[in-house]
Design a protein around this nucleic acid. Structure first.
Length: 462
RNA sequence: GGUGGCAUAGCCAAGUGGUAAGGCAAAGGUCUGCAAAACCUUCACUCCCCGGUUCAAAUCCGGGUGCCACCUCCA
């Protein structure tokens, strides 16, 4: 059974079959770098990182490209507010992006092309669209003529009549038809601009992705990802631009993640209804946030709350605690083989879940069941090294696929803590329970949790 | 108005025809000097409502209701 992928284009799950053997080309719409991103913005970064990782785990060679939109109205505005250039704004938030995304254990894409570095390709593509009659110049702007692309609406299932009936299409007398969209925008006085055959200006929002994909991944790619809100108009327009040039389907599989909501409404910077990833990272570990995002299927909304994070934290602690217990028991385990435990079933369960449109929620269930099994094994007085090792290996493997660390980041025990633990051990030997409890309380206050096990004392940070 | 999505226990969340996974929380028990961790037990005769199809439906069909999103920048 192959991997099944839900394709927005067909609105159903399809068997995953890359265009070229084992090679997978993947493009995901990246951020406009004018601000710190919020936890909702983070979802596609994590989700598609996960898709990439899983495909790699299943043996595919994945080339992953994500763009940075580093010039647009919001960046220009931000630059004016802060008294710095648009490029400085972009550089600042690109750096912030990498910092935050790394904390969520997202590995870098193979390439992060930026609009300002792809200008000649963008201009060439616009010129091509004009030559082939799909676009026209109008007062320094260039527009794509929607009616020249017969398949327009195939991704979002929108018809032009419906869009016009919605009466929310941009009114602009430079356009010939309401649904036409900008490929190139003439510069306003003093604005950052690039020279072009149509005068000074900058690209429209949609063309960058078409041009970048073509340049870095080719005329056809396997997976194109992004948030649901990009389905229309952004991805629809990308299709129109690219396919008008190449006459080939731009992407085989279109994948869209649902939102992270707050108070049941979409996180939105304009209404203040959001938490930045950065501020959450001050309170919570990145691994916990990642685990939380992976706890739901990517096509279902997540309603963010503190309670949800605690829930994720507690669940993850269960897995980590089991891992720590397995490791701890290694020291006193006897020699023995791994055949006593059947660990394969969990790999199978995990893989089956993930094969089904990257169902991380069910994948996590497989891990919980593995943990449960391991904990039962751990109940025995005598455990065998091989069995422990088998559990540890599979746990590391599966959590490794999800890229959620099995240990919280911990500093080394300092001398003071070590001395206290030693003193408590002595107190316990002499049955001085009062002193022992006193020390434990003291350590608890320092954020250290002690566990007395038959195999010795274990500690961890709360 | 058009287009999509969602509605499963206190919370989170799978399951899309075969008689409700898993996690968190809670309660009781075992273990422990006491704890912690772990284990055992309990925790949805029922899946928004009303019809229908079927031997069989949370799952399919029809009709409602509620919530969310997109159609404007947006992950």
């Amino acid at each position: 059974m192959s991997i099944q992928v839900y394709n927005t284009l067909s609105r159903q799950k399809e068997p995953f079959q890359p265009l070229n053997g084992n090679d997978v080309n993947m493009y995901v719409c990246g951020p406009t770098v004018y601000n710190f991103f919020h936890i909702g913005n983070a979802r596609p970064f994590v989700v598609f990182d996960q898709v990439r990782r899983y495909l790699q785990y299943r043996g595919y060679n994945v080339k992953y490209v994500m763009n940075f939109t580093d010039v647009d109205d919001k960046i220009i505005k931000r630059g004016l507010e802060e008294g710095i250039s648009p490029q400085e704004v972009a550089d600042k938030y690109v750096e912030a992006f990498f910092t935050d995304v790394e904390a969520l254990h997202v590995t870098r894409a193979d390439l992060y092309p930026r609009v300002t570095e792809e200008m000649s390709e963008i201009i060439a593509m616009i010129a091509e669209l004009i030559e082939t009659g799909h676009a026209y110049e109008s007062g320094g702007d260039v527009y794509f003529s929607e009616q020249t692309f017969a398949d327009y609406g195939k991704l979002s299932k929108q018809t032009m009549e419906n869009l016009v009936a919605g009466a929310r299409v941009d009114v602009n007398d430079k356009k010939k038809a309401p649904a036409d969209f900008a490929l190139w925008k003439a510069a306003k006085p003093g604005e950052i601009a690039w020279p072009s055959p149509w005068g000074e200006g900058r690209p429209g929002w949609h063309i960058e992705c078409s041009a970048m994909i073509r340049k870095h991944l080719g005329e056809q790619i396997d997976i194109h990802g992004g948030g649901v809100d990009l389905t229309f108009p952004h991805h629809e327009n990308e299709i129109a631009q690219s396919e008008s040039c190449t006459h080939k389907p731009l992407a085989k599989y279109w994948m869209h993640n649902e939102f992270v909501n707050l108070n049941n409404e979409k996180m939105s910077k304009s209404t203040g209804n959001f938490f930045t990833t950065r501020e959450l990272l001050e309170k919570y570990e990145g691994g916990v946030l990642r685990f939380l995002l992976l706890s739901a299927h990517y096509r279902n909304p997540v309603n963010f709350s503190e309670e949800l994070v605690e829930n994720a934290q507690n669940g993850l602690d269960r897995i980590r605690s089991s891992y720590a217990n397995l490791t701890h028991r290694l020291e006193t385990a006897v020699d023995g083989d791994a055949d006593k435990v059947d660990v394969e079933q969990f790999r199978g369960q995990f893989t089956a879940a993930m094969d089904d449109d990257f169902n991380t929620a069910d994948g996590i269930t497989a891990i919980f069941e593995l943990v449960s099994d391991a904990n039962k094994y751990l109940r025995q007085e005598t455990v065998e090294r091989g069995a422990l090792q088998a559990y540890l290996t599979i746990l590391e493997e599966l959590m490794g696929v999800l890229a959620v660390p099995l240990a919280a980041e911990e500093a080394d025990l300092d001398a003071e803590v070590e001395a206290l633990i030693a003193e408590r051990t002595e107190a316990r030997k002499s049955k001085n329970w009062a002193r022992a409890d006193e020390i434990r309380d003291q350590l608890t206050a320092m954020g250290i949790v002690l566990e007395d096990t038959p195999q010795g004392i274990r500690w961890r940070r709360k």
